[in-house]
Design a binder for these strands. Structure first.
Lengths: 123, 123
DNA sequence: ATAAGTAGGTACTTTTCTGTTCCTTACTTA
DNA sequence: TAAGTAAGGAACAGAAAAGTACCTACTTAT
């Protein structure tokens, strides 16, 4: 309520991408082509549940990072895509990703970067 | 355990700075001069408790973002400073901060950026 | 003798975040 | 007639993060 960090742009940026599935979602959308709900749900090998996908999408939408487009069809069709803010945010993933690669090299904990496919299309 | 995101450099980077007081700590240390425990504890207007400061410092240290230097004196003196990885990570705060400023302007929710003092010294 | 400063630790509770399971609507196809 | 599909919603359970309150050791100052 009286937390000044709510007014901090840096905190805002970090909070916008903090959420277990947000980086996954953003990496999926970062190639520019809109994605459907079911598409996002199925294209991960992990157990992303419907509830979690929905809640993460809602938060990203509320924060103005992604946009939701509903086609008045049956069966329903909904597409998600990055907003202008979202695109700008994804740009910063590149240096963060590079930091992570460097970090993993120097701390050599394990290999095999993931999310690489989506992220590579940022450059 | 079998979560591939543990191998994702981007996820690693975001997790490293996710923690309620980590950005505050890093912003304090980002000017390059080591800071003492009590100094970190007292220089925020908010209620950062001893327990939280300790746990956040421990995590940052475990992750190799900050280093801890104990002086064998009485009364005890402990200094915290950024590691090489930490300094590199803090560089990326600049574009993130800029994104936040831009975001706040376009979404005009409120003003008054915070943490500005520490962050400005990054550039 | 007592209190204060320094850098914490421990136990417990509360809050927030994630995950599980089942339900809905409206149309289409077998 | 029944099942399938797309995109969810709601209720509840469990895990993780954060907060509260109190405790430690050591030494110097009062």
């Amino acid at each position: 309520m009286r937390d000044p960090r709510l007014h901090c742009p840096l905190t805002l940026a970090v909070k916008a991408i903090s959420g277990k599935w947000k980086l996954y979602i953003l990496s999926m959308l970062s190639d520019g082509t809109p994605k459907r709900y079911g598409e996002l749900l199925k294209s991960t090998c992990e157990n992303l549940t419907e509830k979690m996908l929905t809640s993460q999408l809602r938060e990203l939408e509320k924060d103005g990072i992604i946009a939701r487009k509903v086609y008045p069809e049956v069966p329903p069709r909904v597409e998600y895509m990055l907003t202008e803010s979202g695109r700008k945010l994804c740009m910063i993933f590149e240096p963060l990703y590079e930091w992570g690669v460097d970090y993993m090299k120097t701390h050599r904990r394990d290999q095999l970067p993931w999310l690489e496919m989506g992220m590579k299309q940022l450059s």
